[in-house]
């Protein structure tokens, strides 16, 4: 029961990481570069939600503002920077994304200050389910994440644009000769990426605090989950986020709290040694 409780503790953290990893992996799969601004897009979403929540008192309105705002922000980053750099080496895109992340972080710092802010949500006692203490707020956040994930996977697997996105991710050249317009796919992908980051950022903000650095500091676990899940695999990213979150918490009785972060990287190493493409990744031929 003790371990089950630890696992529950890890699930919520895993969901935040998983959402970040989903945003990262979508860009990785389709635009083919690691987007280091993912964390800061999450922070932007958290601030957008916080501002609207303070003004209106409604978390629902806050999340709509966060998703909308961050989606537009991600699209703007694409239109102004990444689009112009398309076809350059991965390194130039990566460095550009670090720069964009830096600008977002600095902008938030100037606009909101560096002091921490919090969502004023009512605190509630946990409910007991079969001996497990579960926080109602966590349940709500998990539900929000589940809805967001369902929406993303519905777009990816049930709509024409989703099919086109997956086609580009699979084989860009083949997609192009089949008449898929990269422009539309990219626009859709960046909007989704921004929205997913925003949900992750908002969850993180509600669970912890909001400061300009919160998203940036999540970047390492997000990258780890992306790699573990198999680069470019949306399902893998979410599952890997959850696996890492739960593995970290369940390991604490054995390795202590100081080394739990290292442990998630041990899991990552072990999986990659046995399965270099990640949990859900596919082997790609070198072109």
């Amino acid at each position: 029961m003790f371990y089950a409780q630890l696992a529950v503790n890890g699930l919520v953290q895993g969901l935040v990481v998983g959402l970040g990893a989903l945003a990262l992996t979508l860009v990785f799969g389709i635009a083919r570069f690691p987007n280091a601004a993912t964390g800061d897009t999450m922070t932007f979403g958290a601030y957008a939600a916080l501002t609207v929540h303070k003004a209106s008192g409604s978390l629902a309105l806050g999340s709509i503002a966060a998703i909308g705002g961050a989606a537009v922000l991600a699209l703007l980053a694409y239109l102004t920077v990444f689009k112009r750099l398309a076809g350059r080496s991965v390194v130039s895109l990566l460095v550009a994304s670090i720069g964009i992340g830096f600008m977002i972080r600095a902008g938030l710092g100037v606009a909101f200050g560096h002091q921490q802010q919090v969502f004023n949500v009512p605190l509630s006692r946990p409910i007991r389910v079969a001996g497990l203490a579960i926080n109602p707020l966590d349940l709500q956040l998990a539900a929000v994440a589940a809805v967001a994930l369902a929406a993303v996977f519905a777009i990816l697997y049930l709509t024409p644009i989703g099919r086109q996105m997956r086609a580009v991710a699979d084989n860009r050249d083949l997609a192009r000769v089949s008449g898929i317009r990269p422009e539309r796919v990219m626009t859709a992908m960046w909007l989704i990426t921004g929205g997913v980051s925003a949900v992750g950022g908002m969850m993180l903000g509600i669970k912890t605090i909001v400061s300009p650095e919160v998203g940036w500091e999540m970047l390492l676990p997000v990258f780890a989950a992306t790699i573990l899940g198999g680069i470019g695999s949306p399902v893998g990213a979410v599952v890997a986020g959850l696996v890492l979150g739960v593995a970290q918490e369940v390991s604490t009785p054995f390795v202590g709290f100081t080394y739990k972060i290292a442990l998630s990287f041990v899991v990552l190493l072990a999986v990659l040694l046995v399965r270099p493409r990640g949990l859900f990744g596919r082997i790609e031929g070198v072109r």
């Binding site: 919520v12 500091e217 709290f257 100081t258």
Partner: peptide, 13 residues
């Protein structure tokens, strides 16, 4: 308990 910075939750600690 010694805990790490920047965690989303300190419930296990």
């Amino acid at each position: 308990v010694v805990y790490e910075p920047n965690q989303a939750s300190y419930r296990s600690e």
